[in-house]
Design a binder for these strands. Structure first.
Lengths: 219, 219
DNA sequence: TAGATTGTTAATCGATTAACAATC
DNA sequence: TAGATTGTTAATCGATTAACAATC
């Protein structure tokens, strides 16, 4: 009945979101030469409880050794493998404005296997430019490029009013996953994965929590 | 015992995160001249269930009218008020790199009441520049500026290795809320609100869901 | 061996959803 | 008035946490 019926064995979303944080911490430990770590070591760095780390590892199928803990290097490599960060995934980006350009320049994507092959923009003036080494192409070439390179993943960084139209084109060209940085709520056929990345969500959390704090302080 | 003990009446985090999405939809309705809407109208646009919208409204204390629904304009204005988007909140930004600059240029902040007064960067070459009308100042002036303008909110857009150091300076200068766009896990004294905004989280969700889909497709 | 740490099973907690009385 | 839609109370579902046996 649910829309995107997933395996019952599928990892819960909150757990999945914690995995990159574990990886952050683990890579620090690895640099320091720490060979084995316990769930407790990770938990204390992240202000979480050890049991949560052990449970999350269980979801990924990664096993530690009682008394010993986890071998740091192995855990890093297995987590990367689980997340798909051990191999390159090609993507394209639509919308070479300030946000889009910032994403093209983001250093963190490379080490996580995301490779943005090209950016597309409707502004003909940007045609042929290179942004951080990524070519900007006219939107007319979008369809052919996706098809020709068998791209599965696209990033939307256009204004909200254009997002749906872009999403339609992407799906039509065969895109399977969309990372939506516009504030718009885009509709896609079932079977297409959409991840929204909406700054106003964070702003809401921040403002309301700040407000609550101020009120608590006043008491 | 919990770290940031909040009111027991406090809105759940998932509910809070949905409010900006409601607002998006509501403003569209408002533009179209729709005067009253039901929970069902909102829900169908967002692929949620009406009961969830009603429950979330209850958390905010906003009431509708049986049979009638909610008055669109009133709901928009009350939601904005609840989120603190009806008044201006001043902030500063640290790190005028590509991401920081993109944030300075983000149009969406203004209508949500976030006003970035100044950016700070350790690179002396950037000193005195204007980015989207926001002055870039040397990091040495950070403390004085925050104190002098009684700033409560700061945005961190520096590389991960510098994030903790910046956070310490911010807290020392009296900052109460930090929006952390670096991948680092920063530690702050209790009483300071931190909102992480980590792209690798989204990337993890996207890659794993895409992978699951591919596997389901193969069956 | 004894102690530390894991992984699993059960209990608790919190969010979502259902049921339904209240009401414009 | 009858029907539609709300808000509340109760039931369900899912994630977190606790308890504890297994074991390096």
């Amino acid at each position: 009945m649910k829309h995107h019926d997933r395996d019952s064995t599928s990892i819960p979303l909150p757990s999945l979101k914690r995995l990159p944080r574990y990886l952050n911490v683990l890579e620090e430990f690895l640099e320091e030469g720490v060979e084995t770590i316990s769930a407790n070591d990770i938990a204390s760095k992240l202000d979480l409880k050890p049991i949560q780390i052990r449970k999350d590892m269980a979801f990924t199928g990664i096993a530690g050794k009682p008394k010993v803990g986890y071998r740091t290097a192995e855990l890093v490599s297995k987590l990367k493998e689980y997340l798909g960060w051990n191999k390159t995934t090609d993507a394209i980006l639509v919308g070479a404005g300030s946000l889009g350009t910032a994403l093209l320049g983001y250093q963190g994507f490379e080490k996580r296997g995301l490779n943005i092959l090209a950016a597309f923009d409707s502004d003909p003036l940007k045609k042929g430019e290179l942004r951080y080494g990524v070519p900007v192409k006219p939107i007319e070439e979008l369809h052919g490029f996706i098809r020709g390179n068998r791209i599965r993943l696209a990033i939307i960084a256009v204004p909200g009013r254009n997002a749906q139209e872009v999403a339609d084109k992407l799906v039509d060209a065969g895109i399977k996953g969309i990372w939506n940085f516009s504030p718009a709520e885009i509709q896609v056929p079932s079977g297409i994965v959409v991840k929204r990345e909406d700054l106003s969500e964070g702003l809401a959390v921040l403002f309301v929590r700040l407000q609550e704090h101020r009120e608590n302080g006043r008491r």
